[in-house]
């Protein structure tokens, strides 16, 4: 964990979340869509981010439609990863047919998690549209996927595969922060 740099502390994260929520609120009202809206977060930090965003989005619009998506079963790298895949529950307690969904994740890099999340959502129904909100876009895409709402944009930093960007969010982590550090030797993730 040497050479760790902190990109954002808890107050910075709070303002990033405010900013993301502002972008989303604006886009929702500009869309003029008459269909219901929902927020769905990807485990295990996108869901925390999603619930924070949901508090700041017009409650008349989302009406408590807040969901959690576990994408483990849709990953394309199950046979390659070297840590135990942990399957958790997907909890989407509303009908997603014809619903506008704001999909939320912490870090966007290759786009593979988002691809898995999109497939998982399609298997649950037929959403009206899906927008993507991420706290950090660190670049490094391997699929043609882009975010509609971005907190911190690091695409121009050209971080490369050997740099790791970690988002820490309470209560899963001890504190709220965004850090970067070089990948440790021997780790493939």
């Amino acid at each position: 964990m040497s050479h760790m740099t902190t990109l954002a502390d808890s107050s910075k994260i709070a303002s990033l979340v405010d900013d993301l929520a502002g972008q989303i609120n604006e886009a929702i009202s500009a869309s003029g869509s008459s269909h219901p809206w929902a927020i769905v977060g990807i485990r295990s930090r996108g869901d925390l981010l999603a619930s924070r965003l949901a508090e700041k989005i017009d409650p008349a619009v989302i009406e408590k439609r807040l969901g959690v998506l576990d994408i483990t079963l849709y990953r394309d790298d199950l046979s390659e990863i070297n840590h135990q895949p942990v399957v958790r529950t997907t909890e989407i307690p509303f009908d997603i047919d014809n619903t506008n969904i704001v999909l939320v994740d912490d870090v966007l890099m290759t786009g593979r998690s988002i691809r898995a999340a999109l497939q998982s959502l399609m298997d649950l129904g037929r959403p009206r549209r899906i927008w993507l909100a991420v706290l950090v876009d660190r670049g490094g895409r391997e699929l043609p996927i882009s975010a509609d709402f971005v907190g911190v944009d690091l695409k121009d930093e050209k971080l490369g595969d050997e740099m790791i960007v970690d988002v820490h969010l309470m209560p899963l982590d001890d504190q709220d922060c965004i850090t970067t550090h070089p990948k440790q030797k021997g780790s493939t993730k």
Binding site: T72, R88, L124
Partner: peptide, 19 residues
């Protein structure tokens, strides 16, 4: 715990995951 994550697969419209 893993089984708990699989339970909802049987209740949705497309009862299949690509795992």
């Amino acid at each position: 715990t893993t089984a708990h994550g699989f339970e909802d697969v049987s209740t949705r419209s497309i009862k299949k995951v690509p795992a």
